[in-house]
Design a protein around this nucleic acid. Structure first.
Lengths: 340, 340
DNA sequence: CAGGCCGCAGAGAGCGCTCTCACGGGGTGG
DNA sequence: CCACCCCGTGAGAGCGCTCTCTGCGGCCTG
């Protein structure tokens, strides 16, 4: 090993040392570091020089102990890791969050809350590690945060389903988006319209199904052709298979996620059903799956990156005590491509 | 709003309050919390009851200030967000890391170090937030960690290229894996073997190219048919196009990532070249891309999840001052499928 | 020219925890 | 029966920072 034992860090320089080197008091150094006004420019300069010379970085633990703030927020990802990171939805949400926070003084941490370690998550959240939390993919079964909100600002992606009246969240207009998608199928003359719905323990799953139902009800049509998936391609394929196995005719299909649509495509193809000729398909989510399919998927676009950004914005406002909308609802638009 | 102002957290219970309630000293509570031995069982019970009653969670800032440890490690992701989270490689590495750490007392945080905020990253790493860092996707241009290692234990995924002699890392045997893959093409009678190499500022890119070269040299064959990509599907397609545009015959192809192979496939297809009939293809990475292609990709498998786990294991050992291998090299195996 | 202010700096008291050290009491061995 | 240990406990000193409060000049006002 050519360099110092990496396991034993060299003692970090402290505020005190900077103060000594600059010939001022600790308080003054602190003022400079937090660039509070009213510090003599010359002294400020001396302090800055000393900081550079010592390569000083303020100790967060000390700072947050004294100030009761951490300047960090965390993203809680309760799903299984591989699932989370493969789903383009999460990627975009995270991108939006990171983008907004980059403009602020807050750093983003992420914690993967597996079912096996709920307590660790709770301890992390309540242990003064972060000023607030962002919760994504909020199944009704998850309750890692239940004993947390109230003690810590929390913002959810999507409307929480249970017991969280009054909580802050950002959501997409899932229901109206789904209804619009279904209306498109109707306007194409389709009358036997099925849906592959998402999980019914997530508001996105529930609301998209409700939108499809509403559109069909308005048109006086049957809304019994429903099968469920979990938003993944494989589950979409399985649902499509079940739908076809029913034997009822299907000439239109609304799929609650682009990934499930990808699965459905492969099954339709293996049954020699053409898209959109035999079955017109409209999806939800405008990600790379949607664009990469052949024919490209007509789908409901929603601003996922903005959803992330807005979550971060809401959380920061909450933390800093600024007034903020409790609920943000983001609109959708229909992207017309080849599948319908 | 039906519940308390989320921006203002209720004051958290402290060690002191627990001690008062349990009728013991702070030191004793601390002993119980850190389950150090030699505490009277009856008092320990009283303490535990008090903790439960107050819903007490130790304050991390205070704890780490006093103990100089944070019990947290961070994963530094220097790439652009969307890229990172879409690549199945990262997903698996993270899974491995999270899996190992779940067994320990350490929590995992992640920080996205965009080029725009290198200083924020550095401050985070050196500011006493974490006991160590894991660095993934280490381009030679990135140096956020350069002023960090030496002050903080760091473990890299892949061999760092520059100035990090003595640093700890975990890597895959890229070169021998690539050579084996190329040997397979040779054994299939192919003699005009091209490669789509990865970026030459990452050891994975360099070493896989070197392995291909070595195999061809050993066979006394020409190794001039090289084009480069950045591991993404689009770059693979572009490289394939350049390769074909050269006009030189190609009957074998080694691609340094499965994602690039996906891109190459589409270009070969559009040129009516059959796989493996006209061009036999071997890839690297055994992810969903590899399996999903038609024909399924014969590829070099490497244990990505284990790579993550081993990184975490190495880091924890480093932090705790336990002896540990500086370098771990993980073997590869060849997965035979339809493309070669 | 006196009184008051305001701008800037320093002193000092914590923030909540860990950890060393000293202490008391009961058991052991000489 | 006394010296010695050792186990379990509490007291107290920090860890590195923030922030209030006080103090000290110099300038403006009357």
């Amino acid at each position: 090993m050519t360099h110092r034992d990496p396991g034993r860090a060299r003692p970090a320089p402290t505020l005190e040392m900077v103060a000594a080197l600059a010939g001022v008091s600790r308080a003054t150094v602190s003022r400079v570091v937090n660039d509070s006004p009213s510090v003599d420019p010359q002294r400020a300069r001396a302090v800055r020089d000393a900081i550079a010379e010592l390569n000083y970085v303020p100790n967060r633990a000390a700072r947050s102990l004294a100030s009761r703030r951490t300047q960090a927020v965390t993203l809680v990802l309760p799903e299984s890791t591989s699932k989370v990171f493969t789903d383009p939805f999460f990627a975009s949400v995270i991108e939006g969050i990171a983008g907004y926070l980059a403009e602020t003084e807050y750093t983003l941490t992420m914690i993967l809350s597996s079912e096996s370690t709920p307590d660790k998550t709770r301890r992390y959240l309540l242990g003064g590690n972060v000023d607030g939390a962002l919760v994504v993919s909020h199944h009704s079964g998850d309750d890692s945060w239940a004993r947390v909100s109230g003690s810590l600002p929390v913002v959810f992606a999507g409307r929480p389903l249970v017991g969280e009246a009054g909580s802050h969240y950002v959501e997409v207009e899932n229901e109206s988006g789904a209804a619009t998608a279904t209306d498109l199928l109707l306007s194409r003359g389709r009358r036997n319209i099925a849906t592959i719905a998402g999980p019914q323990d997530m508001s996105a799953g529930i609301d998209r199904l409700a939108g499809w139902r509403r559109a069909l009800a308005r048109a006086g049509l049957d809304s019994s052709r429903v099968e469920f998936g979990d938003f993944s391609p494989a589950s979409g394929a399985a649902a499509m298979r079940r739908l076809l196995a029913r034997g009822a005719p299907i000439d239109g299909l609304f799929v609650a996620s682009a990934q499930m649509a990808a699965g459905a495509y492969s099954v339709l193809e293996s049954h020699s059903l053409r898209i959109p000729g035999d079955v017109a398909v409209v999806g939800f989510d405008d990600d790379e799956f949607a664009a990469a399919l052949t024919p490209a998927l007509t789908t409901v676009h929603h601003p996922v990156t903005r959803l992330g950004a807005r979550m971060a914005e809401t959380l920061v406002a909450l933390i800093e005590g600024r007034p903020v909308e409790r609920v943000t609802r983001l609109g959708t638009s229909l992207i017309l491509r080849g599948s319908a």
